[in-house]
Design a protein around this nucleic acid. Structure first.
Lengths: 319, 319
DNA sequence: CATGGCCAGTCATACGTATTACTTGTCGCG
DNA sequence: CGCGACAAGTAATACGTATGACTGGCCATG
């Protein structure tokens, strides 16, 4: 390449690196660019970063990409990473793998940092010393976190239902192994307790439509049937709809239902779901920004992003 | 590191590389591993690949990761890539970006190959000389492709509806800018033509629930209302459900509806959707396998993966 | 005319690993 | 004892780029 342009390798580097404007004459620079074009030459990025000992690649760890929520997180993170010239490898954590036999064990050294969304802290054990920003996770840890203000969201739902006259409220709860679901549960309990005469019942389920249908069914079959079901996330609400229909209950005529997250599913359901919109893409973007700041030697603070109650057709006045 | 273990750098490389079993005495190997453990030392993967001029990273290009379908494709591709020690960067193509100003332009040289799913061929123009495998794309091109047998799927749907007595069939069609939708449309037309007395009407829509509702509504408001709506994908079927409900039509009592893909949404709808299951994860896995074979100097053949009709509650005998 | 400063490039080296070729020591065997 | 085979480790080099130090030419200034 150097001889093709009739200059030294150093000059090629100066031109193509672009960091030293004015360091090289326009004519020579043009010759280099021309030769590069002709040969289809591209600088080897690995060699480029060799000196600084960095890969300019970060890893996103998510439980799965099949849930659209994490697709949105990725989109936000990828946008910010790309703008800073960082590559982003995604890491869907397989259910059955421990830190040791994870499929990405081979490339675990090939990254500068980790953005972990909704992951248990243990999975980071395999990556000692790697800078980490955690999303949607317990902020009590040492790592910088970016979270949603889910407690506010749950309180807003409780207040919304309270204003509609609901008092007996059922909670279709996800298993509290994730921090966010612990918070959601506690906030809902507090919100319902704040209603005069408010009473909360709860059924726990895995995040699966059929399982949620069963759990919601248990609540609906109780002696004093709740007039509203608050679901920990939108997918669980789909199960609640099914349980209601199976019992001939109309949503929202006989039963109000709410979700949380506002993924695509929320508007696919009929009636469309009242839920709290969590800005997933913003979560990814702010998390990535924090991680890059961390990599740059900064000390980014933990943050919390507000959600917004979106009232659609699944809630109505209590009967 | 070398001196910490009391050996030469070469020996460290021999031990940690692991490619030369028996080349080094067990005692020395243990000493090296021990020192590495103590120092938290990890070989720099960039330097590792420097010699072979490869990055051991491939790029997945998808229109978006927010659609669960592409999440599944990614999962399959990531699994295979990881097993071969390849990193995988994901590339959601932004609607508004041309090849030039794409957010990943900066890292475009940092990859060995491209796996492009459901992407227009033009986006590859910015990556001359890079090995490519295309998924869900026109197999007429020069690249190796891995596709679904969507034509078979559509014919299976037509036959299923035909067996239920349906003759007037409406097609809620996605815009035919993607190859797969052209094939789906043609195959459905052929399948309906094969039914005695079969008649097909068509309304085109963007892939959006509200737009699909409008398109389905147009078909349902026609003089001779179709008794079944065939939708080009599951999300469009959600719109068809809405159009039916808005007109007081029961699914499947008054109207049968089918989708294609079998994403999560299909079982979240009520009634659950009759659709064709396309093995998205398998698509990603086979595509990645083909790409890795290509990178290894092979010439992988193009393939087509069969779908499978999944009959659920949204289809019934014609009235 | 001598000097110093700047411009445009080049030289040399460093980055961290893989690999080839070499060295050293040991052992077995004739 | 002499030789070759072999085991275990090291030296040297290559990979491709970034960058600080250096060089030669040119011009302006005194």
């Amino acid at each position: 390449m150097a001889q093709a342009a009739g200059v030294s390798q150093s000059t090629v580097s100066l031109v193509l690196g672009g960091k030293w404007p004015g360091r090289v004459s326009p004519a020579t620079a043009a010759a280099v660019h021309d030769a590069a074009e002709r040969l289809g030459y591209r600088p080897n990025p690995a060699a480029r970063n060799l000196r600084m000992g960095t890969t300019r690649t970060v890893m996103l760890m998510v439980p799965t990409l099949i849930a659209p929520f994490f697709g949105s997180v990725h989109a936000g993170a990828a946008r910010v990473a790309a703008r800073h010239g960082f590559g982003l490898v995604v890491y869907p954590w397989p259910d059955d793998a421990g830190p040791a036999d994870s499929p990405f064990a081979a490339s675990r050294e090939a990254i500068d940092g980790i953005l972990a969304s909704s992951m248990p802290r243990e999975v980071l054990a395999g990556f000692p010393g790697t800078p980490v920003v955690m999303l949607d996770s317990d902020p009590a840890g040492a790592e910088t976190t970016v979270n949603f203000a889910v407690a506010d969201g749950m309180r807003a739902i409780a207040a919304h239902l309270g204003a509609l006259g609901h008092r007996r409220i059922g909670h279709v709860a996800a298993e509290p192994d994730q921090w966010t679901f612990q918070v959601r549960g506690a906030a809902l309990a507090a919100g319902v307790a704040a209603l005069p005469g408010g009473a909360l019942t709860r059924a726990v389920t895995s995040i699966d439509i059929a399982a949620a249908k069963d759990a919601a069914g248990r609540l609906l079959d109780a002696h004093e049937r709740p007039t509203a079901l608050v679901c920990d996330d939108d997918m669980l609400a789909a199960g609640a709809y099914k349980a209601a229909r199976a019992r001939g209950l109309d949503v929202p005529g006989d039963l109000s239902v709410t979700g949380m997250d506002d993924v695509l599913l929320a508007t696919a359901l009929e009636p469309e779901l009242t839920t709290v919109r969590l800005p997933a893409e913003e979560l990814g973007a702010q998390g990535m920004a924090a991680l890059l700041e961390l990599l740059g030697g900064g000390r980014p603070p933990s943050r919390s992003l507000p959600g917004r109650l979106v009232v659609r057709g699944s809630t109505a006045a209590a009967v």
